[in-house]
Design a protein around this nucleic acid. Structure first.
Lengths: 166, 166
DNA sequence: TACTACTTTCAAAAGGTTTTGAAAATACAA
DNA sequence: TTGTATTTTCAAAACCTTTTGAAAGTAGTA
């Protein structure tokens, strides 16, 4: 397979994956492009490579920087900004977990805590409390697992993963 | 907090969470409603409770059945169908993993395998192959971990999870 | 068979998200 | 300062997904 074809496939594929993971398709494509680029790219180069507008490029590059998946790089003598991707895959995963934990898991735990105060004075209320407690337990377990993972270094994570599959 | 208010909050919250996890909002709300219902519900009861149309209800109930998160139940003497949710949280997680692994992880691994055959005859090609190999390794690790998890029984999963958080 | 309760389909409408691109803002150079 | 390259903003347009509801289909009942 030719390099260019392979690169395009990779960008497409990463975009599709991203769109299922709370990262919009273009955002994931920009990340993919930067991941496989040996050199930092300017906004203009990203726009040209992916055929997207300046607004779109600007917005998604900034989102990637917010997530900690992309860094701004200034070249001496150049007025324009260049961008590089976080290339360490474990770090990428960590950054995504941090965002999603904050945006999804934590709000749900908050609601579960609130609603578990309901009084158990009817069969429906009993069923409700049982289900909510069960989910709450799992959510808290997931939360502390992810928290540990985020705070841990790579080796611990790799080790745990390997342990899991035996 | 009143039971009804708590139930509504739970359904809302579960819907929001679902929509970030490849399950559409209504589908997640139907699942939430069935989860906290002590009795099987008919399509009509689901439509009334969530204020959704028959088409919408039908479509999402079927999707939930496809995912293995909801089961059809026939009551003797009743013409209409009733539905119950899978209430075991670990089983719910397993079912979701099965679907997402199939729909997302496996296609990506396929592409990664294809494109890693590119020849390393330039700095760009080298960078490309390095990144792809790295991701491929991670993806395969994740795949076998999830596969093990899906095939395992609850206890093993709970145990591993607890081990992870120490 | 015809009736009725219930379920399913699907084209059109609604709703939500993403993208565009012109205009405004910014920042450096002369 | 003025000019120019670059970045940012944002309202409108395009696009994509979900929902509706009427009509068709199905299956039990009489």
């Amino acid at each position: 397979m030719q390099l260019q074809e392979a690169q395009e496939k990779f960008i497409q594929s990463w975009g599709t994956l991203g769109s299922h993971w709370g990262i919009n398709r273009t955002m994931a494509q920009v990340h993919a492009l930067l991941l496989i680029s040996a050199e930092p790219l300017s906004a203009q180069e990203i726009m040209d490579a992916l055929k997207i507008s300046s607004g779109n490029a600007n917005m998604n590059i900034r989102a990637l920087i917010d997530w900690g998946l992309v860094f701004k790089e200034l070249k001496p003598g150049e007025r324009k900004e260049f961008f590089v991707a976080e290339k360490d895959m474990w770090e990428v995963i960590r950054k995504i977990i941090i965002q999603r934990k904050k945006k999804e898991l934590e709000p749900v735990i908050k609601v579960l805590n609130e609603i578990s105060t309901v009084e158990e004075n009817s069969p429906e209320a009993e069923e409700f409390v049982r289900v909510v407690q069960d989910i709450r337990l799992f959510a808290q377990k997931a939360d502390s697992t992810l928290e540990g993972l985020v705070k841990s270094d790579q080796k611990w994570f790799v080790g745990t993963f390997l342990n899991m599959i035996k």
